[in-house]
Design a protein around this nucleic acid. Structure first.
Lengths: 208, 208
DNA sequence: AAATCCGGAGAACAGTTGTTAACTGGATGA
DNA sequence: TCATCCAGTTAACAACTGTTCTCCGGATTT
């Protein structure tokens, strides 16, 4: 029961999305801290001042991009981490999810990898918060697993962060391999699979 | 038998180093792709055109910064990874090395973390090459370990990359904790230690 | 039908940028 | 001692930046 927007609001959202899309495109070859407000509006075809109708600043737009890039990913992560016959199958599905996401949304992935440690603090903070949410959710799924018996909360969260960071590293490697051959991507998948496998083995024999 | 430089060359190197230092300072609050040539020379106190006597461009300066930040780290990594009575002790020494390095050279660490996926390709490439060297060296040390019997080269390199990436993540976390309390830093050290421990356990039981 | 709202346009502001060219003056080497 | 070198300076260039204020005209509300 979505309330149909008026012509005014619809047009505004359209322009806003155009600004986000244009910014994301421009960010493939530079960092957010060097992205200019005029640069973005020029790419969209609107006046520079129109920018202020949608965002207070470029940093503000960056925070919106974080939400766009990571916000819709939470359910996917949950279902991928949970429910699998074997841990080997779970790994394969996770790698597949990452590869598919990088294929479908390369600019979003690049943006997150680039700005996670980038020069704009509000954006760094927004990414950190989203990744912390991912880790909490992964932890929640891991806790359901019978193999997590005897694990305390700290160790579960530690492992969840390890998984999340590993996923980001893998996504970044897939991104680099996008311009390479199919064989390059296959090699990335195999290395990432074995790294995940090694972590899973460590988990199985924890704490020693 | 170091040949004493003439007054001319000595003064030139001094200015060059001043440019590198100023740039590193300015990069604590922005990315390389937004760093201006005039900004750097202004901070040093020389004319903008003097910049060209030392670097072709900002990207060129960035590559020099990569060498400065990572070049001298190779021997430290080697000695830290190799030779230890127990793997537990090796982990403790690695964490200690990282914490100490972040304490001593926070700006360098921030620069590497920020520009590894940053908006300037030549700099990304330079960092990737240095990290690949680290991985090769770690692999070399791991190969000497009796525990590496039966490991093939691919798996050793896979493990080495896992260690290197983990070190970078840990360094980045220590960096964030620098502005926090001593307790924050201790927590980072403990989480990082347990993550390293889990990876070591996985290594011990590889391939399953 | 009339009054209000509001996303976008236009013009102008002072300040910034990278790059060029020609020059200066102290160190260097014959 | 004298000619050469070369790190750094000065001046000028067109192009660009974020931000303010004023205005327009179609959508919205009364």
């Amino acid at each position: 029961m979505s309330h149909t927007l008026g012509i005014r609001q619809a047009q505004k959202q359209k322009t806003r999305q155009a600004l986000l899309d244009a910014a994301l495109g421009l960010l493939e070859e530079q960092s957010l801290s060097s992205l200019g407000l005029r640069e973005v509006t020029r790419a969209v075809g609107v006046a520079p001042t129109a920018f202020y109708r949608h965002f207070r600043s470029i940093a503000d737009l960056g925070v919106a991009l974080v939400e766009e890039a990571l916000g819709s990913l939470h359910p996917m992560i949950r279902t991928t981490v949970s429910a699998a016959d074997s841990s080997e199958e779970r790994i394969a599905r996770a790698i597949e999810l990452i590869a598919g996401h990088v294929d479908g949304y390369p600019a979003h992935v690049r943006f997150i990898a680039r700005e996670r440690h980038g020069g704009v603090q509000p954006v760094r903070d927004a990414i950190r918060d989203q990744l912390a949410r991912f880790a909490e959710e992964v932890k929640g799924e891991l806790a359901k697993d019978p193999e997590s018996e005897g694990w305390n909360d700290d160790d579960l969260l530690m492992l969840a962060h390890l998984y999340v960071d590993q996923m980001l590293i893998t996504a970044s490697l897939f991104l680099e391999a996008l311009e390479g051959t199919e064989e390059d991507r296959e090699r990335v998948a195999q290395v990432a699979t074995r790294q995940m496998r090694l972590i899973s083995i460590g988990r199985h024999h924890w704490p020693g």
